[in-house]
Nucleic acid binder design. Structure first.
Length: 479
RNA sequence: GCGGGAGUAGCUCACCUGGUAGAGCGACAGCUUCCCAAGCUGUAGGUAGCGGGUUCGAGUCCCGUCUCCCGCUCCA
């Protein structure tokens, strides 16, 4: 990361905290690593992004409906999805090379160098030890065989540790009788297990989609880069169920649709790129990521994956329920194929913030320097849409401002302020990305007009109070 | 997880070779001002990340610990 980009990123983080967007979690207790809270304007911005996505997916698509599944799910869900097997491998680090190995891979590689008899003995030992979760025993096995790191060539190992990427907790309040369950590591499974319910009750016909927004949890080994990689995060996902054989065209369709959505924020195309997976995950037959150029480089913001019929088939197998659809057009039953679009809400928030943040400097007409920090947020997601600022707090101006406030606040988020010089109030509104400010002045009393100031151009025009609401609504929508 | 750097008021920082904390900005209250921060007055806010040690005395020296940042590592 170039140092100026890094400075910019640090400035964005500081700004986010200073102006009530994002706070470190539990900060008075020194914080909790990789967990963050959203403040007054942050929660508003996040909600606006979420709502915009939700409306775009559900209201704007007749064949997509939403659900809100629980974070807790039956433990078998995660066996079926593959998370239990893939998310909990014992690992060991070599202290000299700093290389981390999956224990099974390490021992298997070693066993391959041995005569078959000896190799089988070691591998069956390992299997027993792993089944009993006897990690000390596994360590001893590695030590006894003097298994070496291929990089450093030494046998200087850490203890064997379980890296379970899923958070577990207990269901049931009586200790001992409790069952271990997981906080979901992805929201997708909540959709898959409800496939039959939704298809039937909302009378959906393939192709159709199910959308969901919700929290998911992962015990990231290294979680850093502010809210980019958090242990608790929010996903906006849509699983689109299609007839087998048509997945390719739907995959292409959603690629395009999702990019259109991103560009509707006004972000320049060059800030985005595609990252095609050369080797998609085992369940997918096609996968691409949309990457955005964050201050710390191009990083994944959204994935569009062709998940085949893997998930529904797995649930069919584990639950014994027929996860199928009868297609009248071809008179056939089948397990639908799935195209997934999955975007991180927190990442989208960071994207919007990164894209909006600007420090500006210019020379005023009198030759002195001026500057401001402004969030050029798209008006449709800005926390506050309109600031109402009486030029003076006397001569009846505040009263007029209050009237306007009363009239507008149920249409969009308004903010009233009469303290400090007008320039200072403009700066404060710029800092939190308020796209429009109106001032009430003496002329307002004469002709019922106010000035409206555009955040980005800092230009203002005079408009009638009577038309204010419609003008602001049009401006918000027009973007 | 490893290596390096940093932690003093909300923010940016000062306190030189140890003697019981200051400034600017910001916030708040008020005054002034008819349009883009840095006019005026006043107020609040810090047991110097936390714990221990050395010392008559530590923000300042030593050790530990926590958190954050950078690099590596890891990552469906």
């Amino acid at each position: 990361m170039a140092s100026n980009d890094n400075n910019r990123f640090q400035a964005i983080i500081a700004h986010a905290k200073e102006y009530g967007f994002v706070f470190p979690s539990s900060e008075i207790y020194d914080g909790l690593s990789a967990v963050y809270d959203y403040g007054p304007w942050g929660s508003e911005l996040k909600k606006n992004i979420r709502d915009y996505w939700w409306k775009n997916m559900t209201q704007m698509h007749e064949n997509i409906v939403g659900i809100d599944a629980a974070i807790f799910m039956h433990p078998t869900t995660w066996k079926a999805s593959g998370h239990v097997d893939n998310f909990s491998d014992p690992m060991i680090d070599n202290k000299d090379s700093k290389k981390r190995y999956r224990v099974d891979h390490l021992v298997e590689a070693y066993a391959e160098t041995l005569p078959k008899e000896k190799a089988d003995e070691i591998l069956s030992n390992l299997e027993k030890l792993l089944a009993n979760e006897d990690f000390a025993g596994v360590k001893k096995l590695i030590d006894d065989n003097k298994i070496k790191c291929s990089v450093s060539g030494t046998a200087n190992w850490t203890d064997v540790r379980q890296f379970n990427l899923m958070f577990s907790t207990q269901l049931g309040s009586v200790a001992g009788e409790a069952d271990t369950i997981y906080l979901r590591p992805e929201t997708a499974q909540g959709i898959f297990v409800n496939f039959l319910n939704v298809q039937k009750t909302a009378r959906m016909k393939v192709p159709f989609g199910i959308a969901q927004v919700g929290k998911a949890f992962r015990n990231e080994i290294v979680a850093r880069q502010f809210i980019f990689r958090m242990r608790e995060f929010e996903q906006m996902e849509m699983q689109f169920f299609v007839r087998p054989g048509t997945q390719k065209e739907w995959y292409e369709y959603w690629r395009e649709e999702r990019m259109k959505w991103h560009l509707s924020f006004g972000t320049p195309k060059e800030k985005y790129q595609w990252h095609v997976h050369a080797k998609p995950a085992f369940y997918a037959d096609n996968a691409v990521d949309i990457e955005y150029e964050f201050p710390f480089g191009f990083k994944e913001i959204e994935g569009i994956h062709s998940r085949t019929d893997y998930d529904l088939s797995q649930h069919q197998k584990f639950s014994g329920k027929k996860m199928q659809y009868f297609d009248n057009e071809i008179n056939q039953n089948y397990v639908p194929y799935v195209i997934e679009t999955s975007i991180g809400l927190d990442r989208m928030f960071l994207l919007v913030l990164s894209q909006a943040y600007a420090e500006e400097k210019w020379t005023k007409e009198d030759g002195t320097e001026d500057s401001r920090t402004v969030l050029r947020l798209p008006a449709k997601v800005a926390p506050i849409k309109l600031a109402i600022l009486p030029l003076l707090k006397k001569d009846g101006l505040p009263e007029i401002g209050r009237e306007i406030m009363k009239d507008c606040r149920d249409e969009f988020y308004c903010f009233y302020e009469e303290k400090d010089a007008i320039g200072k109030r403009y700066r404060r509104m710029d800092a939190i990305g308020t796209p429009f400010c109106i001032t009430v002045d003496h002329q307002t009393k004469e002709d019922q007009t106010v000035t409206i100031r555009d955040r980005d151009s800092m230009k203002q025009e005079r408009i009638p109070i009577a038309k204010l609401k419609e003008i602001v609504k049009a401006k918000i929508k027009g973007e």
